[in-house]
Structures are given as C-alpha cells and as structure tokens.
C-alpha cells in the first residue's frame, strides 16, 4: 500500500516536472525562456520553491541570483506556498474608490491576514491584483477563481466563511 502511494506521488512529481521540461524544450532551453518557465513552474507547483529555482537555473544556464532576481521582481510570482483557499482583491482605481480599503480592513479584522499573506492555519491566502478588469463589478473580488462583485465587507466575510467551512 505504502509503496503504491509512494509510486503515485513519484509519478505526479514526474508529471509536473515533465510539464516544466516541456516549456523549456519548447524554447530550446534558451536563457530568455526564464520567465515562461517560471510561469510553468508556478502553474504546476503553485509556487516557486528553492529546488525548482535551482533546477530551472541549471537547465537554462542562468545564474542562481539572476533567477531569484527575476522571480522576486515580478509580483505575479510567489515564493511561498498558497493557502487552501485564495481571495484575490482587485485594487484597480474603480474598486479602490468603491471601498477596497474597508474590505482589506474587514479581512484583517476577521482572519488576521494582510494582503499578500496566508493565514496561520494555512486556510486562506489574501492577494491583491492590479485591476482584474471587472470594473463594472467594483469592488471586485475573486474567491477561489470565481469573480464576484459589488460586495459589502460583511457579505464578503460571510462568503469567505462559508468557502472555508465547506471543506471542513
């Protein structure tokens, strides 16, 4: 049993690695494929960890510090694992003037998470995005990939609550 589980874990690991390898191969392992490859890593692993950065650096022959410099320059990349659930808050101008500060405040009050962080129990990650283009829904929030909008802070907190509770 244990062996089978291990094997299965190994094969997912391989599968993920294959996806990253495919991206690099598509670009001929050229050093300029760094950002494309990091996108691929983040897509399959959820974040960029040191092992992955090492691997990419070696495969694309890009210096470690440069890989790190690029990975930290772009805010889309994250070096930390994300929580089980994500709440992305749009901070575009339209959303801002329609009450983003109050929303961030309410989340901080209820879950003690700042934008860009994950709650201590690993349940909730709060992220911000520079305009998701749903200005008509301002203030817009993306809960586990679903865009919702025109929410009062209280309603949002409720929605987050039920989102987290659902898998308990």
């Amino acid at each position: 049993m244990e062996l089978a589980a291990k094997k299965k874990a190994e094969s997912t690991k391989d599968k993920r690695k294959k996806l990253v390898d495919a991206t690099m191969r598509r670009h001929g392992h050229a050093s300029h494929a760094l950002i494309e490859t990091l996108h691929s890593v983040q897509e399959v692993y959820g974040y960029l960890d040191d092992d992955a950065l090492h691997y990419v650096a070696q495969e694309l022959r890009v210096p470690l510090s440069k890989v790190y410099g690029v990975a930290t320059f772009y805010h889309f990349f994250t070096l930390k694992p994300q929580g089980e659930h994500t709440c992305v808050i749009c901070t575009g101008t339209a959303c801002y003037i329609k009450g983003v500060p109050a929303i961030l405040h309410a989340i901080k009050e209820n879950y003690n998470v700042d934008a860009g962080d994950t709650s201590d129990d690993g349940k909730l990650s709060v992220l911000t995005a520079r305009c998701i283009g749903s200005c008509g829904l301002a203030p817009a929030v993306v809960l586990d990939g679903e865009v919702t909008g025109k929410l009062e802070p209280d309603t949002l907190i409720e929605r987050i609550g039920s989102m987290i509770k659902n898998d308990a």
Binding site: P63, S65, K66, Y68, G69, T72, F73
Partner: peptide, 10 residues
C-alpha cells in the same frame, strides 16, 4: 563571471 550577486525585489 560568477554572477553571485543580483538585486532582489523592486
């Protein structure tokens, strides 16, 4: 030629 150093963040 080592490129040990770089800039983090922005």
């Amino acid at each position: 030629g080592a490129h040990t150093l770089d800039v983090r963040g922005r």
